[in-house]
């Protein structure tokens, strides 16, 4: 499994590829059936920065849940770094980390303790955990809050900690579900700098409602509408396809377009 991890030997490929084939999730709650994700097929290259866009309820979080093995697909499968989420979920877990839509930090633990806890739960021993925590604290510029309890941090710092907690497990694939949700413009920009530093280090799948964020960071984007992939490509390709100049206009055109999928 080490061969797909990014840290250490620079000669190794950075990040791992994702191949999604017909991934479908149907929720049945009460008498209601929701097709949250509908036959998603998509390939993401190792080391690629990929953004998944879509309006509320488009199925982005559900896609991430299936790719991370949290939720079993109703149909279809996906391989991450060569491991199938359906058949080898534990192997998949070793190479991914999800930074969820909520901050998901241990509130009464300090920044450092949160990081060491993650490292330990993902299999590092005490010494390795401390070293990794120090490394990530430097990388994410968390030094001045390292000994503060998470609940005393502002939203922006909590988000940063949340991403740091993902990075410390040395994932080959990192899922960032709305990492800048609820942040002010400055905090968001700061976080972009941090996130863009990950480019090429690890495969990143990002979801966001801030289109400038997707535009600034991603190599390619996918737009989901009603659980289906409506469009896929670089910002330039999506704009060319819709005859628009800005990603936001392309997004609106694609998200409101009737019928046709990719």
């Amino acid at each position: 499994m080490t061969e797909v991890k990014h840290n250490g030997d620079p000669a190794l490929p950075r990040g791992a590829a994702i191949d999604i084939a017909g991934l479908t999730k149907v929720y049945r709650t009460g008498g209601k059936t929701t097709v949250a994700v509908d036959g998603l097929t998509l390939s993401i290259k190792a080391g690629e920065f990929f953004s998944l866009l879509g309006v509320n309820g488009a199925g982005k979080t559900t896609t991430i849940k299936m790719l991370s093995g949290l939720s079993a697909p109703t149909e279809g499968d996906a391989t991450l770094g060569g491991f199938s989420v359906c058949k080898q979920p534990l192997a998949v877990r070793q190479i991914i980390h999800v930074s969820p839509q909520n901050t998901a930090v241990a509130l009464n633990l300090t920044v450092k303790e949160n990081l060491e806890l993650m490292a330990g739960l993902w299999g590092k021993n005490g010494k390795e955990s401390r070293a990794a925590a120090d490394r990530v604290i430097r990388q994410m510029e968390l030094t001045k809050v390292a000994d503060d309890r998470a609940k005393t941090l502002s939203g922006g710092w909590q988000r940063r900690l949340s991403i740091a907690m993902a990075l410390i497990t040395d994932p080959a694939i990192l899922f960032l579900d709305e990492p800048t949700l609820g942040l002010d413009v400055l905090a968001r920009r700061e976080l972009w700098t941090v996130i863009s530093a990950l480019k090429g280090q690890v495969t990143v799948v990002l979801t966001t409602h801030y289109l400038e964020e997707a535009e600034a960071l991603s190599d390619r984007l996918g737009i989901m509408v009603g659980g289906k992939l409506r469009a896929l490509g670089t910002v330039a390709e999506l704009c060319a396809r819709t005859g628009t100049e800005k990603l936001e206009d392309a997004f609106v055109a694609l998200a409101t377009e009737k019928g046709g999928t990719l």
Binding site: S68, L90, R93, I96, L121, W122, M165
Partner: peptide
């Protein structure tokens, strides 16, 4: 939810 993707 985060820890559900760990080896826990």
């Amino acid at each position: 939810t985060r820890l559900y993707t760990s080896p826990m």
